[in-house]
Structure formats: C-alpha cells, structure tokens
Amino acid sequence: MTTIELYAENSYRKECTANILSIQERFVVCNQTVFYPGGGGQPCDRGIIKQFGEIYEVVNAKKIDGQIVHELNRQLQCTQQEVRMEIDWPWRYQNMKYHTLLHMISGYFYQQYGALATSSQIEADHARLELAFSPEIVSVIPFEHIEKSLKEAFIQPQQVRTKTMSRREAEQNAGILKTYLNILPASLTEIRVVEIDQIDEQACGGTHVNNTSEIGDFSIVKIQNKGATKKRMRIQLLD
C-alpha cells in the first residue's frame, strides 16, 4: 500500500492524523502523511508525531517504493493507535519559498539564454543552483547585473499552479518541460508539473508557494565558474 502524499495536494497543510501501516524499530510508515520526504534539491520536512500524549521527533523522511518512511528519534510504542503528525512549518515554508525561487531563476535563464539547470540544493540559510550554458553565449551574459535583471523580470507577482499530465502529453511540450523529461524514470507515466505563469514549467514533486509575491526579497550572493560553460549561483532570501 502506498502512502497518500498530502503535501502534494496542499503545500500549506501543516498536520494530519494517520494510521500506522508498519513499524520497524524507529522507522514508521503510515497510510498518509504531511511530511515531504525530500527530493529535487529540497530537504525533507522536520516535525513531530504524537501518540498517547507522547511526542516523537521526526528526524528524517524518505520515500521508498511508494511509501514515506518516517525516522523517529525513538521507537513508537503502539502499532494499533493512530498518530498525529505536525510539520515544522517555518522550515517547510522557507523551503517552499526557496524551491519556487529556484524554479523562477532556472526558468529565466532557460528563456533568456537557453541554459539548463543541472543541479540545485536548498540549505539552512541559502540555496545553490548550477546552470549549463552554450559556449557561444556564456561569455556575453552580464552576470555582474544579473540580480537586478532577475528582480526586474520577477517584479509582477505570478500564480504558481500544479497539475498532472500524461508522459505522452508532456513529451509534446515544446518548452523546458520536454527538455527535462529524459532524466525522469521511463516507468513514470503520470507527471506532476509545477507551472509559474510566464516564467517556468517543470516536472516536480516538491512543495511551492501559491504566488511568487510570498518569496520576498533575495540576493545573488556569489557566482562561481564550474568549468568553461557552467556557473554555480548562491542565492539567499532576505526576508
């Protein structure tokens, strides 16, 4: 039985009750969860599980064979009683803002320069994005003014939406979505897509804000060369 991923339906949901499917020492699987298990450079959620007045810290969450496995700081005592899950909301919301911003920046560079994001990672106080450019264009991009250009491009708030489409439909897409399909498992027939109006459209299973206005101000702290045609950007939220 797979775990129902409530975070995919509503990124703003902070808690839920759930029935236990299995327990193996400190590792618990439930029928549903609000805990995002990490992926795509976004860390997993933190938080707690409550049962019989006892509080257990969720120190890690991971998706394995369709089930979300919650690693607790100590073993849960009862397998029959339902549990209550509560995520660390400030941590989740910060990651939502960073994840959405990374989509926006990678979408901008794809639209403006045909660049592809090759990796990303969200840390506790910043995010990292690596971009690959064609040799003929990387030398003429005004990176010294890129923060100003990004902020001008993002000045109008945009809605962020999720939808599901078939892989065949996604393959017919002419934009960046089709470009990234080849890195997804061939067995994946239904694709969850995150769409930011006029900015980006990518396959993604992570959590995001509903509107780009929620992100607030940001800074491009550092841009490093990672080879002749690759750049690594360090990004920091300022609010």
Rank of each mutant, 00 (worst) to 15 (best):
Q159H: 12
Q159M: 09
Q159S: 14
V160I: 06
V160W: 02
V160Q: 02
R161K: 13
T162E: 04
T162F: 04
K163F: 14
K163V: 01
K163G: 09
K163N: 08
T164I: 14
T164M: 13
T164L: 08
T164E: 11
M165G: 01
M165V: 15
M165E: 11
S166R: 09
S166A: 08
S166Q: 11
S166C: 09
S166P: 06
S166H: 07
R167H: 05
R167Y: 05
R167E: 08
R168S: 14
R168Q: 12
R168H: 14
R168N: 11
R168I: 14
E169A: 15
E169L: 14
E169I: 12
E169C: 10
E169W: 06
A170Y: 03
A170H: 07
E171K: 13
E171R: 14
E171W: 05
E171F: 06
E171Q: 14
Q172P: 10
Q172A: 15
N173I: 09
N173A: 13
N173R: 13
A174Q: 15
A174K: 15
A174T: 15
G175W: 04
L177F: 07
L177E: 10
L177W: 10
K178G: 09
K178I: 03
K178H: 13
K178S: 11
K178N: 13
T179M: 11
T179V: 13
T179S: 11
T179W: 06
T179D: 05
Y180S: 00
Y180K: 04
Y180A: 03
Y180H: 06
Y180C: 04
L181Q: 10
N182K: 09
N182Y: 05
N182G: 02
N182C: 00
I183L: 01
I183E: 00
I183R: 02
L184W: 07
L184C: 01
L184Y: 10
L184Q: 00
L184S: 00
L184F: 09
L184M: 04
A186Y: 00
A186K: 03
A186C: 01
A186G: 04
S187Y: 05
S187F: 01
S187L: 04
S187P: 03
S187V: 01
S187E: 11
L188C: 07
L188D: 03
L188T: 09
T189E: 14
T189I: 11
T189L: 12
T189D: 12
T189C: 01
T189S: 12
T189G: 00
E190D: 09
E190W: 06
E190T: 10
I191K: 01
I191P: 00
I191F: 05
I191N: 03
R192C: 12
R192P: 10
R192Y: 14
